[in-house]
């Protein structure tokens, strides 16, 4: 099994619902975002870019690209970052030593560090006391490795897990469920009859920074808007 995702940029309206769903389902502390949506080329989201009065506004959601050749995993000295049997790149929060080598190595800027204790960070940001959000229980993989916990330990790295706590029991990731435009399609790239496989086969897809040889398992369908 090789879990992957297709993101149809033609349908994305830049509403950032996926980012919000991701953030709250995965209890990300203030300032930490596993999933980002920005307007191509703009310094502000939802600002048009262009020249000579010809403006455009396209959106690009980016989270962990689930590389088949993941630099983050190769540099990790303690084996905290690993790829599970479903092809998902995960971080063992009990193993990570916080060296941040993986942050330097990842070309996509998706890895986020716990610079302080998330509970303290929430308090400092002024979140209501005792207000906890996100999936409330720990989630361990089949070998007992802790890959989700609502408040991560201080000093470890975190990132998108394809919602390991949901997808391990056959549900969809939060971003897929939360997207109003049905932009995101999630499935098994090894299964030729899955929707993701069909799209990758039949449509022209783009992968980010493909030239670096990371072989991402997140594919983008270009925002075509055909004019001829």
């Amino acid at each position: 099994m090789r879990l992957g995702m297709v993101i149809d940029l033609d349908r994305c309206i830049g509403c950032r619902s996926c980012a919000v769903a991701c953030k709250s389902h995965n209890a990300q502390p203030p300032g930490t975002w596993w999933n980002r949506v920005f307007t191509h080329g703009a310094s502000f989201h939802q600002a048009a870019v262009g020249k000579d009065g010809a403006l455009q506004m396209e959106y690009l959601p980016v989270s962990c690209q689930m590389c088949d050749n993941p630099a983050c995993q190769k540099v990790c000295p303690s084996g905290a970052t690993y790829t599970d049997e479903r092809g998902v790149v995960l971080i063992d929060y009990e193993r990570c030593i916080g060296c941040r080598y993986c942050i330097a190595a990842c070309p996509y800027g998706v890895r986020q560090y716990n610079w302080e204790d998330p509970k303290k960070a929430k308090e400092r940001a002024g979140y209501e006391k005792g207000y906890e959000y996100g999936y409330p229980a720990d989630f361990r993989d089949k070998d007992g490795r802790l890959v989700y916990t609502p408040n991560r330990p201080v000093g470890v790295v975190e990132k998108c897990t394809f919602c390991a706590q949901y997808t391990s029991r056959g549900e969809q990731p939060a971003c897929v469920k939360g997207c109003p435009g049905k932009v995101r399609i999630f499935g098994d790239l090894d299964d030729p009859s899955s929707e993701v496989s069909k799209l990758v086969r039949k449509r022209q897809t783009v992968r980010l920074k493909e030239e670096l040889g990371t072989s991402p398992k997140v594919f983008y369908l270009a925002a075509t808007k055909p004019i001829r």
Binding site: K74, V75, C76, P77, S78, G79, A80, R95, C96, I97, G98, C99, R100, Y101, Y113, N114, P153, V154, G155, V156
Partner: peptide, 19 residues
């Protein structure tokens, strides 16, 4: 520089020789 210097032994117990 290690955020979790208390777990530094993980490098010796679970070394990843590609790193």
């Amino acid at each position: 520089d290690m955020g979790r210097v208390d777990r530094i032994w993980n490098i010796f117990v679970y070394p990843n020789f590609r790193s």
